[in-house]
Amino acid sequence: MPLLLLWLATASTASAHPHGWVDYTVRVLFDNQGRVSALQQRWKMDPMYSLTLMEEMKRDGGAGQQQQQLDALGSQIVKNIGKQHYLSHVYRNGKELELGQVTEYTTLLSGQRVEFMFVLPLATPQKPEGDRLSWKIYDPTYFIEFLYDNEIDQPLTMSGAPEGCTTNIAHFKPDPKLVAEAAAIDVTGQAPDGMGKRFADTGKLQCPAD
């Protein structure tokens, strides 16, 4: 699946104009000690790119081999995004935390769109005291735009959370100067470092303090 692999692995050379987008959801997972242990994510590729992938799969092997091709695609996606911090950044009091290695993932077709789902563990589970934990998911070059899925009621949820915990999304509010800066970059130009982060929404967790 060379096109999607290129799409997910060109962060070092892409321009600031998004060439595709991903609608995503996050579920905050807690362990049996009430600590945040992982972020379960679902990425839904944009319709045009999904169509391109489905056409490639038909051409390369047909419906009988489709799931095998999807499994191979998921393996390559994990390998590629693993080199880029899984395009995910988790913070405690503004300091970025180390992540573990993704070993649980699956790729499937949902209607006319390709979905990639995976569990991203934290290297060290975190006590969710107060409002100290937050995260951003983005392509640093803004080659791919990541958006919380607005087609579902709750794109940010929790599993196994202690009583009193809540989540919320701080949506990016476009600064006209930043939008103009991105628009001024030619489609073949080099994006400034960190452009994607500046357009990213922030997920936040708040739990009662001990």
Rank of each mutant, 00 (worst) to 15 (best):
V78M: 14
I152Y: 04
F116H: 07
S159G: 03
F146E: 02
K127T: 08
Q69Y: 09
A209P: 04
W43M: 04
P125T: 05
F30V: 06
M45P: 01
H85V: 10
A161T: 02
L51C: 02
Q84Y: 12
E55L: 14
L5T: 11
L53S: 10
I185Q: 08
K204M: 14
L205R: 06
P2W: 01
V36F: 03
Q41C: 06
Q40M: 04
K197L: 12
P208R: 10
S134F: 02
L109K: 10
M1W: 05
R59H: 11
R132Y: 00
P162Q: 03
G160R: 04
P162A: 03
T167P: 01
P140F: 03
L133H: 04
Q84E: 15
K58P: 00
D71V: 04
Y138L: 03
S134V: 00
I137T: 09
I169D: 05
V102T: 03
T107M: 00
H17D: 12
M195T: 12
D193A: 15
T13G: 07
T103L: 05
G130K: 07
P2Q: 10
A9P: 00
G130N: 07
V78A: 12
A209T: 14
M117S: 05
R35W: 05
V36M: 04
L122W: 03
H19W: 00
K173S: 15
G196R: 06
E181L: 14
M195F: 12
V22Y: 02
V114Q: 03
L99T: 01
S134H: 05
Q84K: 11
Y24T: 01
A11H: 09
R27D: 13
F146Y: 12
K127S: 11
Q67G: 04
A16G: 15
W135V: 00
L3E: 09
R113V: 02
F118K: 02
Q84C: 00
L8G: 03
Q154G: 00
Q66L: 12
L53V: 11
D149T: 01
Q33H: 14
Q33C: 04
K95Q: 15
G111K: 02
S12K: 13
V28F: 08
L3P: 12
D31Q: 06
V90Q: 08
A63M: 10
V179Q: 11
T107F: 00
